[in-house]
Write a protein that binds this DNA or RNA. Sequence first.
DNA 1: TTGTAAGCGTTATCAC
DNA 2: GTGATAACGCTTACAA
Lengths: 339, 339
Amino acid sequence: MNIYDVSRQAGVSIATVSRVLNGNAKVSEATRQKVLKVMEEMGYTPNVFARGLGLNTMQTVGIMCADSSDSYLATAIYYLEQELRNYDYDVLLCCTGYEWENRKKYMELLLSKRVDAVILAGSNFVEQTREKNRYIAEAAEKIPVVVLNGYLEAENVYCALCDDADALYRVTKTYLNAGKRDILFLGRSLSYSGVRKRSGFLQAYEEMGLKCRKNQIIIQDGTIDEIRDLLIGRAKQGIREEVIVTADDELAIGAVKYAKSLGIQIPGDLEVVGYNNSKLGLCCEPELTSVDNKLEYSCMNVVNVLMKVFHHGRVPARTMISADLAVRGTTSINFLGGF
Amino acid sequence: MNIYDVSRQAGVSIATVSRVLNGNAKVSEATRQKVLKVMEEMGYTPNVFARGLGLNTMQTVGIMCADSSDSYLATAIYYLEQELRNYDYDVLLCCTGYEWENRKKYMELLLSKRVDAVILAGSNFVEQTREKNRYIAEAAEKIPVVVLNGYLEAENVYCALCDDADALYRVTKTYLNAGKRDILFLGRSLSYSGVRKRSGFLQAYEEMGLKCRKNQIIIQDGTIDEIRDLLIGRAKQGIREEVIVTADDELAIGAVKYAKSLGIQIPGDLEVVGYNNSKLGLCCEPELTSVDNKLEYSCMNVVNVLMKVFHHGRVPARTMISADLAVRGTTSINFLGGF
DNA sequence: TTGTAAGCGTTATCAC
DNA sequence: GTGATAACGCTTACAA
């Protein structure tokens, strides 16, 4: 059944049916109602392909993420999907993994599917070299690209991110102000946000005119157990710290487990701060104090930006959101000043 | 740029170009190469809408899930997406929430988008009454529907599920055999798989000719803390148990927290078994023993079934996979016989 | 093996 | 306001 059947039944032309369909041009209320009624009766559904052909859009946004099973990204996808749905956009999901070649391929795939925009979820999409980011910039020549929690400067590329540097700066500063000196920064990678977190940490030291030793920073990917073991090994070499601030909750839980293993009291002997405020942090004992990077808000922001761009509004290329802190059992310091 | 441009440049007809595009009919190797080369040079990309119009398919599968941020569902989505991608199918994601009306609406939406199939991820999609499941059966009249971890009998509906009843039966039986009697079953809901889990639990009791008291079964939705408090309240009424078997890892972690709160030793005084073998179980202390319901395998199965259906193969309406057990720190019993 | 031409179901541009 | 009619870019009989 198609628009012709409807037009015949309603005794109008297909053009009129199309107009009714699109709520578009001037159609008399009488014919509109007539057509609507016929559609209802016949159970007519417009063909999206034909419509796509005409309009060259399918009301679909592609979301690329490394791994949708990652708890942080999964949550991001959820918020993005919900928000896009509010604007009647569908979501085409691509789990790209972490390899650059694949991502490039997926981007081409999404372009060939004629999505209306692409959202890159996760700062790990932004590479260090201009060359490796070129495929993103090229895609942005055709459709808007929005990066969630990453920063990339290019035409038609928009970024919504949390001020990770500031968050780590404030946490670290709070501890330094309280007289703590042996603070360990535990990061997972040197992605854009990874670098930002580290620099926030360093900035706090600098501002106090304090020296940050090399072994106060560890960048290490690994499972909870691997992180725990890493820290145990470190402790056995006699390196101890009073505070561990991390770049994600899994790292932080690794730190909690390390403390447990060696009988180090949390938060008595050691304070631990996680990042992302994920559900994982509620599973350990004591529950994790964790930076809340306002994911829901960021995701809404991403979608808002997109909608503005679709309607040819001017939009800032970059929106920065400041983080919050969910204070729980792994810390005893008073953050009130900093947060 | 379209197929006409290519055909002109290559000095052939559009039909030939189309044939090359579809690797379809007999085209001489010479012309094929010629056309391919022109496409490459021109950077030609077929228009999916036009293609969809012709073929009436977009090589897209809709995945409906309640909430993609749920760790179990997020993992399922990941596996499904990866596997579908292997067959060049895209994924249209719908997070429907738990309300029936919404789900019905989303199903209609997916149908109107002309997806080639729908996957319902999670047993919560299957309702208790035929009436409420009708929309699924009706959708299945148009396209195949596959239910992951749920069971629904209808034409063109396929189910891939883990034998949850058996898993709970085996766990419970192991404890009963070891002489434990005070076992608590902690479920979250009476969805299809929820019911199955409970009945596996009950079956173990029955088979031993043992009576299962009413207060040995709790069906309760809630956060980790809520579950913990619930159990604390129960303990204060003097009800204690030696073993808690649960329907998901969050419930189990609630149980672990309850034990911690009251100074109950795990696994000394209390053994806890989770379900899903999720990452959450690695975050608590001790780490959670948890039923591994073979999610990856189930997801591969779902996709395999779909591909067979697409190619008109006969497929069993229901595939049952038996669960495994990831034994960790919250149990001390020897499961080897049962698993 | 290749080409011609008729769909596929819309939207959009004209006239009226 | 409404109706013809030409795109849109592809697939696929049917011819050659």
